[in-house]
Design a protein around this nucleic acid. Structure first.
Ligand SMILES: [Mn+2]
Ligand SMILES: [Mn+2]
Ligand SMILES: [Mn+2]
Ligand SMILES: [Mn+2]
Lengths: 218, 218
DNA sequence: ATATAAATTTAGATTAATCTAAATTTATTG
DNA sequence: CAATAAATTTAGATTAATCTAAATTTATAT
């Protein structure tokens, strides 16, 4: 039996280690889960014991194949619930995260597969992140950060890196949504701010914004 | 902060004590939650401490007004999720209970009220039990057990007392669903079995069945 | 290469929930 | 109404998850 806490650690290790590819440090996990390094050490021993991860003292941790599968299944649930909340229950994209954080731990194969069908097998969640299918398969669409975009080129918004409520509300206020098309007008060398055109309007966004908005070429 | 375990105890006390009206014994709770009496005693002290219940050593426990409110809110969530699973996700009425047992603990006012609206404010769950509204109000429809029905009278099935999978599957197999009309043909004094007519068919059901099927006069 | 800093682990407690076995209280019954 | 039975509580452990403070290991920087 896997506990809710173990699931949260596994998911954190997966995300911090670039989809489970890289080794992750104790402190990184502690920061991410808002817990203490000593608590993390205890849990890493347990995850290792249970064969969810390979852990070497002082060297870091990486998920096993099984651990990766579990992580992907939790992420699938998290993102499907987010779609449900936005599409069916009138949640905004900045409201879904906390609730999905709990819903992702509900254990029922049938529940999640029926939810997937009910939502008509969505491929991306409200933040543009891909949703793994029943077998754990998914592909990242190729995307770049606005900060890496080229002047005069045209792009489409396809995702956010920061999913904090404040950033998402900023985007809402500036009418930047997934699917919105943007043209790069000017990149200011002084402060890395970027002038863009969208919805027949011209706005300037800070470097901070530019580093958290994903685009694809169109 | 209320824990999942506290919520399960509060719900059990509510149900065992006729909607929180009567005092409940330690052993009854232990049986209902499949735990030991000594564990129950510990939790009753805690619930009392937290003002969710009045507990007197050796005398039993009863919910406070606040405890009752919490119980009703959990039951509301449980039943709304059951409706969702059956109406939207193709669950059968014998499959919903365990999942709802977990979903009922998800904490989000918005989630449950939007779910309620999405389901168009259902008044009863798949087993015929009433769903409390946002303010905790609900009314039991007047219903009797099939075992108390009168020969020659006509009734409509409106609920089940036993919600076990085996009983619900028995009802399915015999085409007895909520809404089905039944006429009482004969009550056998020897074994309390009852001959009934439904769907233009005549069947005989055992006392055990008769004591777990709710009817209303039509 | 040695000292200092940073990261990590260990030691020892704490809290929630559970259990078994023993002690106590309440109920039943001859 | 005593004595036996049943119900309940207490005592003492255990497991999961967490914490603080101390010890240890690894990294960095003269
Ligand atoms: Mn979570
Ligand atoms: Mn998301
Ligand atoms: Mn429950
Ligand atoms: Mn029900």
């Amino acid at each position: 039996m896997i506990t809710l806490t173990e699931e949260n650690y596994i998911k954190a290790i997966y995300h911090l280690g670039k989809q489970g590819e890289e080794t992750v440090n104790t402190n990184a996990i502690a920061d991410s889960l808002k817990t203490k390094a000593s608590s993390v050490t205890d849990m890493l021993k347990k995850l290792s014991e249970k064969k969810y991860a390979h852990y070497i003292k002082y060297q870091g941790v990486i998920l096993t194949e099984n651990g990766k599968k579990i992580a992907i299944s939790i992420i699938r649930k998290h993102r499907l619930w987010e779609v449900f909340l936005v599409e069916k229950l009138n949640f905004t994209w900045d409201e879904v995260h906390e609730v999905a954080e709990d819903l992702e731990h509900i254990q029922s194969e049938k529940l999640i597969n029926e939810l997937d069908a009910f939502l008509e097998h969505p491929t991306h969640d409200p933040h543009g992140d891909p949703i793994p299918d029943k077998d754990g398969n998914f592909k990242q669409i190729e995307k770049i950060l606005l900060s890496q975009a080229v002047v005069n080129n045209k792009y489409q918004c396809v995702g956010v890196k920061d999913t904090s409520s404040s950033f998402l509300k900023y985007l809402d206020a500036n009418k930047i949504a997934l699917g919105t098309e943007v043209t790069i007008l000017h990149k200011e060398p002084f402060d890395q701010s970027i002038k863009i055109e969208l919805n027949n309007n011209t706005i300037t966004v800070s470097q901070n914004v530019a580093k958290n908005l994903f685009l694809k070429t169109v």
